[in-house]
Simulated assay, not measured.
Amino acid sequence: MNIISQLQHKAQSRAATDGGYNPITGILLVEAAKLTISAISHLCVSRNSDGQVTAPNTLIMQRDAALPAIFFTMATILQSSGAYYLDLVPYLALSQLKVILAPLFARVILKHRYPVWSWLYVFLMALGIILSQLGTTRSEPSSPPERQLMMLHGVASMLLAGTFVALGSTCVEKAVKKNPGSLLAYNVQLAGYSLLFVLCYYSWLTQMSFAQFFRGFNTLVVVYLDLQVAGGLLVAWCVYMTSTVTKNYAQGLGFSLAVTVPLVQGHHRINIQVAAGVLLVLVAVLGSALSAGRASAAAEPSGREKVSDVEK
């Protein structure tokens, strides 16, 4: 997912935006593709032996999909603004705000209880992300007021976007866990709402003019949109199979790679702050995975004992 974030920043940075690419058109195409793929997949896998489509309660899914669709739509628009105003590393670092907020929202909304070590790993990951950003930020003379205002705009956009992503992901996890087996149908509802919201927003911005819809599209934009579609479906599946918090740990690992790989390829010196930040993120990701594995292994024998007791 951090590869997608890098492409998003490159496609929507100030230099790229001068070429005329409108990120709202990209969001429209992504949501339309998600809707089409999810609808076709749902029709293919939900047929019973008589060839009829079995669907869960559509009204419940429509209600559950409306709010996260608003959150994700707002977050995507705000991320576009952040990519426009911020450099790559601050943009990537601020996009990880959901790593910190997701456990908090899961605790409040989903009533999840996390052990102390889980909160410790979240803190280590947040500290590692901050150190990585500070280590890659060049010391420059004071920026002009215009540049400071643009950076403030970008930071505010990314903070709001991270909050909306964490809220939306938590709502999605609650919905798909409440209706097992309805992931594809829920994706249809979610993409449908998002497509409608973005279409209304685009129509309002352009005064119902679609003449310049594909202006500024190039190979980079097309690759970014394709990865955005695949990444969105993959993230939904990961949330369904695990949780929002687990998915964010994987994205934290991707953040470490996104920060270090360009430095290595460009033969830049990796200072102590970057090294310490990346190390903390890796410790948080690996520690969380190992602790979760031990917890699952410890719970498995007790489950088997209960089964054997029932059989007796």
Rank of each mutant, 00 (worst) to 15 (best):
V229L: 10
C200G: 05
Y240I: 00
G181I: 07
F210P: 01
P301L: 06
I272Q: 13
P56Q: 02
V310S: 10
A289E: 07
I272R: 14
L199F: 14
T244M: 03
T219V: 11
P145Q: 07
V188Q: 00
Y202A: 08
W119E: 07
N48H: 01
M125F: 09
A106L: 06
G293H: 11
R47T: 12
N48W: 05
M158A: 04
Y249W: 11
A161K: 08
H9D: 02
Q6K: 08
N187K: 04
T242M: 06
K34A: 02
T219N: 07
A69W: 00
V116D: 06
S38W: 02
K306G: 03
F214M: 13
W117N: 11
L253F: 15
F72T: 01
L67G: 01
L159H: 00
R269D: 10
L78M: 10
L160F: 09
A175V: 07
L43G: 11
T246V: 11
L225W: 14
P144K: 09
V45Y: 06
V259G: 02
R147C: 05
L233S: 08
N22C: 09
V310R: 13
D309P: 00
G128T: 10
A33K: 05
A75F: 01
I129G: 05
L280E: 02
R294I: 06
S132D: 10
V310M: 12
L290R: 09
T206G: 01
V235C: 07
L286C: 14
L35V: 09
A55W: 06
A33S: 15
F255M: 13
K174F: 03
G181F: 02
D309S: 13
A299H: 08
S142T: 11
M61C: 03
L28I: 15
L110R: 15
L127C: 15
V221I: 15
E311H: 12
G181M: 01
G181Q: 05
Q251E: 10
R63L: 11
A55T: 14
L234H: 05
L120M: 15
L110G: 02
Q228V: 04
P141N: 08
S291F: 03
K10M: 10
G277Y: 08
P301E: 05
Y202D: 05
T137K: 13
V281K: 03
S256V: 12
G266R: 12
T36P: 01
N22W: 02
A258W: 04
M151G: 00
A276N: 08
A11V: 13
I272S: 13
K306Q: 14
S243P: 03
Q62Y: 13
V165H: 04
S291N: 09
L94Q: 05
T206S: 13
Y224A: 10
Y186D: 01
L167R: 02
G293W: 08
F72H: 11
I100C: 09
A276Q: 06
V283H: 05
R138H: 05
L205E: 13
V176R: 07
L88T: 06
V30A: 03
W119V: 03
L160M: 10
Y186M: 04
E305C: 07
L124Y: 02
T260Q: 03
A289Y: 12
Q228N: 15
H9R: 07
V229N: 11
Q12G: 00
K111L: 07
G168S: 07
A69C: 01
E305I: 06
V264E: 04
S143V: 07
A55I: 09
R215D: 10
A299Y: 01
L67Y: 05
I3N: 04
Y21N: 07
I37G: 02
S182V: 00
Q265D: 02
N248L: 11
